[in-house]
Amino acid sequence: MTYEFLVASAIGVLVAGGIFLLLRARTFQVVLGLTLLSYAVNLFLFASGRLVLNRPPIWDKTVTEYTDPLPQALVLTAIVITFGMTAFVVILALRSFLETGSDHVDGDKVPSDENDGEKGA
């Protein structure tokens, strides 16, 4: 087994899980799907610099071979932006749940907090 196979198959599995969850009806599942898909996209972007072992892009007089730094810079900001996006979507889902009493992605078709109160206390 090669690292290339591991990364490629991991990306595939994450995408499959992400798509499936994004198509679900609950907002929280959609957020999870988005998170999985983001992992996959970030890994894919990173992989476009190819997989290189033990050659971090830290410049040194004695070193001549480095991994490609550009995908890393792009992915670094992408990770932070992913957090911003996830946070926004989560809060959007929360607000919509608080407004409508339903966590269905299309609004108040299926109210879901009727059995919510009974379980507590």
Partner: peptide, 25 residues
């Protein structure tokens, strides 16, 4: 239905990644 689409999409993305990683940049 969603599962079929998800698996197809995952396989395709995995395939693309594999194709990319096994080629020189």
């Amino acid at each position: 239905r969603d599962g079929a689409l998800a698996v197809t999409g995952g396989a395709l993305m995995g395939g693309i990644s594999w194709a990319m990683l096994t080629r020189e940049p």
